[in-house]
């Protein structure tokens, strides 16, 4: 039953995403790949879409995966699944459990989770980058994707140029737009 599966998987994602936005990427990646809902390529392209549309990434992901797997009802149950844990927990905290947030062991649990989240996020970013650049970790195939290497260098260059020269940090959307533009221009030139 696809609806139950979608609900259950996204409920777990909602329940175990500490630390917002990117922290959920590793969990969603595992879920969609292991269930065969998206290919790795589709998954990462969709993060690009999420970055350029409003709203929390978790909700966007749930809606997208749900809708592609089970139409509007699929989208609805997946979104409900990802929202329900936060909703219930926050409601309980607001009603009566404010003390749990101040509980020593609870705080220590959250503190302990933090380094794990950082490892998960960095790993997700680095594997995506390596893949874009043309290297496959599990089969050791190497072919250099010069266009991606060039784009990556240009993005880093521009990012720090903006900080140094204009004293301004490029926002996520600006970076996505610049990379899309670079992708189009460089592919048209080189292919």
């Amino acid at each position: 039953m696809i609806y139950l599966e979608l609900f259950y998987e996204f409920f777990l994602i909602g329940l175990f995403t500490f630390g917002g936005g990117y922290a959920m990427i590793p969990l969603v990646r595992e879920t969609v790949i292991n269930n065969g809902w998206l290919t790795l390529e589709e998954f990462y392209s969709f993060i690009g879409v999420c970055e350029s549309t409003p709203g929390p990434i978790a909700v966007n992901m749930a809606t997208y995966v749900g809708s592609t797997q089970g139409g509007i009802l699929g989208g609805f149950v997946a979104t409900l699944g990802v929202v329900l844990p936060s909703f219930t927990i926050i409601l309980l905290i607001a009603i009566c459990l404010k003390k749990i947030v101040e509980n020593k062991h609870f705080k220590n649990f959250i503190k302990g989770v933090r380094p794990v989240i950082v490892a998960l996020i960095l790993f997700a970013g680095i594997t995506l980058l390596i893949k874009c650049l043309g290297f496959n970790l599990s089969s050791f195939d190497i072919y250099f994707n010069y266009i991606s290497i060039l784009i990556f260098s240009l993005i880093i260059g521009l990012y720090f140029l903006f900080i140094k020269v204009f004293k301004k940090k490029l926002s996520s959307i600006q970076i996505i737009l610049i990379s899309a533009f670079l992708g189009i221009v460089l592919c048209l030139i080189f292919e």
Binding site: Y22, S45, A124, G125, I147, S148, S179
Partner: peptide
């Protein structure tokens, strides 16, 4: 085709954003 080209760039941009977030969180450990 043009969208495919754009996504060649966007995927790299997304990896940059994720790594950047990861590093700034790493500094706070």
């Amino acid at each position: 085709k043009i969208v495919k080209y754009a996504f060649v760039g966007i995927n790299v941009g997304v990896s940059f954003l994720i790594i950047k977030t990861g590093f700034s969180m790493l500094k706070k450990i």
